[in-house]
Design a protein around this nucleic acid. Sequence first.
DNA 1: ATCGCAAAGTTGGGGCTCCAACTGCCATCG
DNA 2: CGATGGCAGTTGGAGCCCCAACTTTGCGAT
Lengths: 238, 238
Amino acid sequence: MATSDPVYLRVVEDIRRQITDGSLPPGAPIPSRAQLTRKYQVGETAARHALRVLAGEGLIIGRVGSGHYVRERPDLTTLHRWRYLDHPAPFAADLQSQGRRVTWDWHSEPIEAGPDIARRLRLKETTPLTKTRYVYRADGKPLQLATSYEPLEFAAHSEEERRSLVARMYAHGIKITEVVESVHTRVPRPAESDALDLAGGVHVLHVERTHWAGDRPVETSDIVIPGDRFRVTYSMPI
Amino acid sequence: MATSDPVYLRVVEDIRRQITDGSLPPGAPIPSRAQLTRKYQVGETAARHALRVLAGEGLIIGRVGSGHYVRERPDLTTLHRWRYLDHPAPFAADLQSQGRRVTWDWHSEPIEAGPDIARRLRLKETTPLTKTRYVYRADGKPLQLATSYEPLEFAAHSEEERRSLVARMYAHGIKITEVVESVHTRVPRPAESDALDLAGGVHVLHVERTHWAGDRPVETSDIVIPGDRFRVTYSMPI
DNA sequence: ATCGCAAAGTTGGGGCTCCAACTGCCATCG
DNA sequence: CGATGGCAGTTGGAGCCCCAACTTTGCGAT
């Protein structure tokens, strides 16, 4: 029973759900503090805090004297999005320079996080995700295996995106030689730079990273590849 | 007179100053809510809000039942750090593959932001910064010019770092073909993933980006290069 | 000298209220 | 008909309070 959660979270989660599933489209007004207290039977403090959290996540924006509104470009796909890559990798740039043709295919299957992945990605062990095994080939001959763990919704709309992402990775000549992981979250704007406008607010992306080489964390540098629907960060040791 | 600022900001700014100038070293306890109300003559709400903001910035960390403490690795150098790059750039990887030797040198001078830079980096026009002009050469012959605007403290400890940064950029084969800018800030942890430990908390970096090609913003991808004292993000259109 | 325990202090959640500044809208007046 | 003024609603700052859960500390008993 997780009913002992803070009540403001109930409000946050309900509104967030409505935004993410489209019931509250961009531009739509969020109920005011007074309305929220009535609707969810909570105090003003909780209602206010919920609005602050949502505004911090960049999902809504407050206008003094007017109200809170769903952000125009909430970039929902980057909310709690991550992938876990394991590309032990000699890579396309090298191989192609040797005149060899590099191809790849993959197979995805749904699994639960399990203790190891759960610990690394800080998820519950029961979190459903998609495990994808890539097979890279040079001139048709299997060359290497790579593994990627992704949240379900990511995998959902990724058939052609997956191909284009990998292709872009290759185009950049990225060499991924270690096990890496990245966690993407929309993020509170810093307290200083506040007023982002409803319309074309700056793209705010928070990348929290822990990198692993076997058991010990390693310093890495990241490549953020923005797609039309999301951004992905590829990390590599430097 | 800007004495009509919110009072909680007075508290935030004073404590932040003490942390950044070292009067409050890592691990040092921050006055409790009760003490802050007395010390700054503010209400509990303001004291509490100030602590929340500082915790959000990652400068301090709250421990229930114990108190707030200065974070162990506050990574002050990444606080409000940015550079503005203008590398119109054919680059080392290409040239070197053609067997040419690429070198570069630079000259820095202090200036004020001025209207153009101020607008792009959202600074005051009088903000002091360092303008650095790079000259890239292939086999000794001048090849291209690049411009970089940086905050003063950055330029201060950068003689050899500058060289190694540029070298790493080259090593990664980065091609920067547009005017880009990046703003680095320490950032509130997302409301979800809370407990970062005092000691080895995960490196949290917030990169807020606006990219310009002439007058219109462009989609870019980023390369974050972590140094020992700071991280720098290089952005490039994809 | 060590152990256990209670008291004091602290955070974080939550409630209630007041107010200044601002927005939106409607009605009234010229 | 258009401009103006006023009123209701909203946000964000601020104050004060209560409480549960937790940590620290110091005291007293063994």
